[in-house]
Amino acid sequence: MKSTFLIQRYVPEQDSAPHVERYELDLWDEATILDGLLAIKDSQDDSLAFRRACRHAICGSCSMVVNGYTKLVCKTAIASEVKRGRSELKITPMRSMKVLKDLIVDMSPFWKHFRDVEPWLQPDPAKVPPPNEEYRVTPQQLAPSRKDLNCILCAVCFSDCGVTEVDSHFAGPPALAKAHRFVTDPRDSKRKERLEKLVDLGLWDCAHAYNCMECPKHVDPAHAIADLRRISIEAGITNNIGAKHSQQFTKSVGRNGRLDETRLVMELTGITNVTGQIRNAPQGVRMLLKGKLPLPMHQKVDNPKEVRRIFETVGTKDEQ
């Protein structure tokens, strides 16, 4: 099968800016994009630099952007891109991290976020079993973190996440999935401390773009983040803008069947917080003049009872 790779090249000692080079390939039908890169390195240009190791989606080395989306290239067939209607494969390095050479990026910010969640078990020393015994953990207790364990730290989701791109403080999906793995571990004793720290690391900064749903290992970090938020509210960690927003949002929709944005902002600021309300006022007026602020009337949907019923049903489901 014939294919064309357009690869972004950049050698810091030679190039002032990246440029694109074109390579023609003719490989077997099932060849992966990694097979393509290896073929180029072996028989066309040995200077092409990229990371790779296991070649079967367990080491997490070979993430890069292919036609706009970050992929683990050992797991992506060339044919699948062709099938998507891309006759050429445009390959560039991952986003949100500095390019060091060709397709190799500096992953140190990614690893820093990972370390920040203190990714190791912190048990209660008094409860550690003797050396000849294990902790008793049932399969059911293992279930919540099962998907988190699949994470190979490939950074595919980190590169595609809209928030990491604009906010270097946001821990990012894999670090949060890792945190979820410990928060849900019945052997860990630092659940509350972890959750409190996670608020500072950006637990509430995820903007639900769901780009991380394309995880090559089906980790589902978006779910891990949502679950961490739920657990943290349950644990009473609500004195932060994210949790308050979430609680008021739910309240508002429960009450009116739709979001009352004006009231949401007022309640988040604190109804009795006079200075805060005054500070917000000019912004409110500007928004009102531009037609961006709904008027305090007509806030309810036609039949708010229906919405309330949904809340009640979901509420009872949760308790089951």
Binding site: L121, V128, P131, E133, E134, R136, V137, S145
Partner: peptide, 19 residues
Amino acid sequence: IRELEHQGCLFSRWQDGRI
């Protein structure tokens, strides 16, 4: 094995919670 388990390794379990 149990040392790894104490360090956090989530081995698959029997229903009774043992490795």
